[in-house]
Design a protein around this nucleic acid. Structure first.
Lengths: 352, 352
DNA sequence: AGTTAGCACTCATTACAACAGAGTGCTAAG
DNA sequence: CTTAGCACTCTGTTGTAATGAGTGCTAACT
């Protein structure tokens, strides 16, 4: 390449308009349109030279000799990392978000609402993980006897999220005994995080059982069972999957099926989202970058969300690789901030 | 048609094998295969004559002149109504069902389990409506104060289904007051159906308020709010939708999208299922019979399920019109019976 | 009478060739 | 370094022909 210093301003500018053009039209873009579409006053021939360079660097790629170019994954990556100019949210979208994610409107399923909003406003699929246990506060717990040694545990966390599970105890408890246990747990531990309660309970169990009366020991034992981490671990709420069926680039029936199966198996998706937890702020997986076959034709724009300055979950949008990143990225960013604020027990529910 | 009495035994026999053949192969079936595939020893020519008759009667139809015949909706209808020979369940399927729908294994989401089983074992989509309120028994209720006048209501029904909603009261209650109210409701009304409790509560409100102390009045008022029928009304649990993407006859992307949107809007689906409530036993909608565009390429095999001899809900399977009715129908039938039995509070949870 | 063989006919599918259009890479001139 | 020009490549479309499955009808058969 005796041509020039390869990554000059002009090539990047052209890459940018190429990606923009491809995102909006969905078709390989050739030297002619690029020549007209960019500010640079360059002839198609010059552009072709630049294109050849970009292709050598693996940033664009041609489906066949006589088609235009389309961005490769690296091309998209370069685009979102350094070339992108964000577009501000449309104000109607912003107000929909505020409206839906205000603490006042909480219908007991803030996570679901967030997911649905993401899907609705982007016309792609929305995804939100449940907040992690360390930041989920026990508000109230209740035990109900079922048949035999089975006990139904209901617990309310944060402001109003209700969870329930069934545990098996090693002896049979009466309703009254269970009520007592619940009272004890509530008065002792309410307000702490699930994680913290669990640790405290385990400690009690190890150390000073002799100091406690039988009722307390029972209560502690039941609580320990109740707070054992769920088999399922974390989980997420997905919305608007069907939007994905509208994209022609995901038309392949088999691929779509694979994708939807990945959604319902959850495992790989969770693993992917887990990686996003680590980084604060917006993160993007483009196509194969995710490392999962099911996502090789999709991009995932995520952001962690935080409550009281601690990251507790991840939310994002899933769509075709060819998506309007310049709008989606700020959108996901804002949504994450609003959800975090809405979940914050201090700011969220002022007992006005 | 000077031919003969049109609906003779032989034509029906041929229609039957035609439908069977089409269901298994998915391709228009011609006179030759039909001649070989049926017990009748008839030449293709004769069969063609019969086919012409069946076509005149609207039972079969030819995509074009030189294709075989495929059943019309009426053809399918005739088939399932009078020609079908049921196939018994495979024993492994039966045992999976027993296993999953035994009361012992209840994981607190019997309805969901049933839906998933239907989907898994038929490889189509499973659907189960939630049992209607009249047959849902209040077991325990709990109130928790939220900010302001909002109260979180948690109630446990039947054995272990947990529901929750948020209500707004007309004055602010303390945790203790709410606890008292819940105690009152539990001791007075536990064990009755939601519907019955609601009626009783409304009656109390109208009639003898003066007989009660303030605490009781409050309790009754809160209970009334809590038991107000949900905006959503009934609901259903769908499983295995993605299985539907595997069927080539539903390949049309736009159609699939429409179908999935109908699923997530729920409304039309609910309306359709409602009709199935009325009839006891298995009911079938074939293609356009449902009257909904979204289902015009699908069939729906449903059965109502009953607890203590009263119909409380509907369950079924959704798949392409070309499905193995002879297996699906008995399958849905059995599943409905097992689910009903598992939900029955008398037989389900023997405190052995 | 009902049944069957034979045959002409229709129509979807496939294959193949021809062709237009888009866009490239390269060369040579500006 | 940029650009015009040109040969080349590849896709997509169109038209034509051949194939094959299956029919409807007629006439012969039982």
């Amino acid at each position: 390449m005796a041509h020039t210093q390869l990554l000059n301003e002009r090539s990047l500018q052209l890459l940018k308009t190429l990606v923009e053009r491809y995102i909006s039209d969905g078709q390989p873009v050739g030297s002619r349109v690029l020549s007209k579409g960019s500010e640079l006053k360059l002839s198609p021939a010059t552009i072709r030279n630049v294109m050849a360079d970009l292709e050598d660097m693996g940033l664009v790629h041609s489906p066949h000799t006589s088609a235009g170019r389309i961005p490769t994954v690296s091309g998209y990556r370069m685009f979102v990392d350094t070339l992108l100019t964000y577009k501000p949210l449309e104000s109607k979208d912003l107000s929909r978000l505020h409206e839906g994610l205000s603490a006042k409107e909480d219908n007991g399923d803030m996570i679901g609402t967030a997911s649905r909003l993401l899907a609705e406003l982007t016309q792609m699929a929305g995804i939100v993980t449940l907040p992690k246990r360390e930041q989920v506060y026990l508000r109230h717990i209740e035990f109900l006897p079922l048949s035999n040694t089975r006990v139904l545990v209901i617990f309310v966390t944060n402001e109003q999220e209700v969870h329930n599970k069934i545990i098996r105890t090693d002896k049979k408890f009466s309703a009254a005994e269970l009520q007592q246990s619940a009272n004890f747990i509530n008065s002792t531990y309410a307000g702490r995080s699930l994680q913290a309660v669990r640790e405290a309970v385990l400690k009690e169990l190890k150390e000073d059982q002799q100091r406690m009366n039988q009722g307390m020991v029972d209560a502690i034992k039941i609580a320990q069972l109740a707070l054992e981490p769920n088999g399922k671990k974390e989980d997420y709420v997905l919305a608007g999957e069907t939007n994905l069926m509208g994209f022609s680039e995901l038309s392949n029936r088999d691929y779509l099926k694979k994708l939807f199966e990945a959604f319902s198996q959850k495992q790989s998706v969770l693993h992917l989202l887990d990686q996003c937890m680590k980084a604060e702020g917006v993160q993007i997986f483009i196509g194969e970058e995710s490392g999962y076959q099911a996502f090789e034709q999709c991009s995932l724009v995520t952001s962690s969300y935080s409550v009281s300055d601690e990251v507790v979950g991840v939310l994002g949008v899933i769509g075709p690789t060819r998506m309007a990143y310049e709008k989606i990225i700020p959108f996901v960013d804002i949504t994450a901030k609003l959800l975090g604020a809405a979940l914050n027990p201090k700011t969220a529910s002022p007992s006005s």
